[in-house]
Structure formats: C-alpha cells, structure tokens
C-alpha cells in the first residue's frame, strides 16, 4: 500500500456504525472510508525541484525509501509522527497537501546527523529536513519557527561582525519569540554560578558590555556574504515561484 494512503485510516476518515446490518449481515463497528475518492487532484509536480533548490535538499532525488533515516532518527524516538522517510516520499510524489499537514513538527529536526550517517544513498536527510522547514516558511504555510528565529539572529550577527556574542543572540532570540528572561530554571542556573564565583561572573558581564567580540577587517567579508545571500534569495524566490516581495 503506498504510504500516502495512510490518510484513509486517519480518525476523521473512520466511520463508526453502532448498528449496521447490510443484507442481513451485522457489520457494526469501525470502518475506514474505503470508497472515498482516491484520486489526488493537487499534485505539485515541481515539489521535489523546489526542495532541491534550497540548501541541504539537493540530493533528495537519490532516495530509494529504505527507511534507515527514520529508523536512526533521534526525534522519531520521541515522536513517531516525525518521519523523514515519509516526508521524502511525499515530496518526491508531489503530495504537497499531505506534507503540509505536518508543518508544525518538521522544523524539530535536531541535526544530530544520525540519518545522514545511516543513509546508504547520500541523500543527506538532515539537510532535506532543514530545506523542507524553510520551504514551509517561504511558502507561507507556517510562521517563522523558533529554531529559524534563532538561526537568523545567530547568522545575522556572524555576517555582520564575524563572531557571535552568546548573550546578545540569547537576548534577541528571547525578545523575538516573546519569552521572558526570568524563567525559574534560568534564574537558578545563573544564581548558582554567581554564588560560587561572583567576581569572575560580574567581570565577565562587565567585559561583554564594553568589548564586543568581532573579527577585525571583516567589512569585505560581510559585503561579499551579503551579496551572495541576496543572489541566493533571488534564485530561491524564482525556483519557488514566489513574487518579488516574497515571504521574507
């Protein structure tokens, strides 16, 4: 049975008849709606190419569905709905609507690379997960997820200065995701350290506000990166058929 037909046994496609007798035979109970229309009218024939146009997704066409990625997956062990093999299948079949159903979890890939380690076909499933998460955001199916907010803040700082400053990334990340910096576990963490070594910690905090780490003569690298990023964004917008303003 093709994998996408698991839609037929989803709860909303199951019917329950408490009392159903057909031609004298009692067929009461749960039934899947086998006789529903089974044609898929909304193939996106370009879906695989769209994912392949994004960084990390280039090798998706190589997949032969062995399932090693899902078998090895860290997140799958916590949440069985997190299924890289299934999503790669949907993308290759162009089943966009089916893929979009899982838009709230695809971004949760933790980049442990177990899938890429196990993959016999050099698909780089980890990269495909990142490309797919990015695709969902660019197409407007989801808002920017917390991990992407973090990636953006982090990358922005690297592109601008050549280095990162953890406290600054943290602060911006918490602000953009509307999380307070005063979460009980964070307070306990920091206060434990301050109790033990207040002088060092205060000095470190003081230092960080005066000397921001940065790479010297970074301007030309910054400009070169910026130019490349703009070029790539234009390519991606074209490949995904987004209008010029896009979802950026």
């Amino acid at each position: 049975m093709p994998i996408h037909e698991k839609s037929l046994i989803r709860p909303e496609n199951l019917v329950e008849h408490e009392e159903l007798v057909i031609d004298g035979v009692d067929v009461s109970g749960h039934w899947s709606t086998f006789i529903e229309g089974r044609s898929v009218p909304d193939y996106n024939e370009d879906l695989q190419e769209e994912i392949a146009a994004l960084g990390g997704g280039e090798n998706i066409h190589r997949c032969w569905q062995c399932g090693s990625c899902t078998n090895a997956c860290t997140v799958n062990a916590i949440n069985p709905d997190f299924n890289p093999r299934f999503w790669i299948y949907l993308i290759r079949m162009g089943l966009e609507e089916e893929l979009v159903r899982d838009r709230e979890i695809i971004w949760q890939c933790v980049s442990c690379n177990k899938c890429t380690y196990a993959c016999p076909r050099d698909v780089n499933p980890e990269g495909v997960m990142k490309a797919t998460a990015h695709w969902l955001e660019l197409k407007g199916y989801t808002e920017t997820k917390p991990s992407m907010v973090f990636d953006e803040e982090f990358s922005h700082q690297v592109f601008e200065t050549g280095k990162i400053e953890e406290a600054k990334v943290l602060q911006k990340f918490f602000k953009r995701t509307n999380q307070p910096l005063t979460q009980p576990w964070l307070i306990q963490l920091v206060s434990g350290l301050v109790k033990r070594f207040p002088v060092f910690y205060l000095m470190k905090l003081g230092f960080a506000t005066v000397f921001h780490p940065r790479t010297r003569n970074w301007d030309r690298s910054r400009d070169a990166i910026k130019e490349y990023v703009d070029e790539r964004n234009a390519e991606i917008h074209k490949a995904l058929k987004l209008d010029a303003k896009g979802a950026d």
Binding site: G55, S147, D151, S155, V158, V229
Partner: peptide, 18 residues
C-alpha cells in the same frame, strides 16, 4: 589570528555554502 565564527549549527540552515 583574527579568526571568525565557524557558523556553528545555525548558519548552514541559512545557507550551507556560507
């Protein structure tokens, strides 16, 4: 001398080539 950030786990999600 004057090293820069390696991009950690984040920059690759914006663009692996960078």
């Amino acid at each position: 001398e004057n090293w820069n950030c390696c991009g950690a786990m984040e920059v690759k999600n914006v663009d692996p080539k960078i």
